[in-house]
Amino acid sequence: MRITCPLCGDRDSREFSIRGHETYLDRPAPDAGEAAWDNYLHLRDNPAGETAELWYHGAGCAAWLRVRRNTLTHEVLKVDLVRDLTGGDHAD
């Protein structure tokens, strides 16, 4: 698999590690309740088809990426910087 890092370009997947579904971006408030935290930490839609995951370019620019991908074909559809999604800045 190859992933096009928005900062570094087209790279072999071995430069990256993956954390899991993009759910991890939506951290509940501390008082959101047990169900919200269960959803955040454990429960997954686990789609057979398009999904979005968080990958880390650890052997590259250290950016966290959201990778839209198909779990049936392994096609990579779109790659975004997590910082762009969360409103982070680009000073470095």
Binding site: Y24, W64, L81, G88
Partner: peptide, 22 residues
């Protein structure tokens, strides 16, 4: 060491982009 560095990058970029820190 490696796990913590990855974790800090995640926390900053994904959860606390509001914080001005490098």
């Amino acid at each position: 060491a490696g796990q913590v560095m990855t974790h800090l990058d995640f926390v900053h970029q994904a959860l606390r982009p509001d914080l001005d820190v490098r």
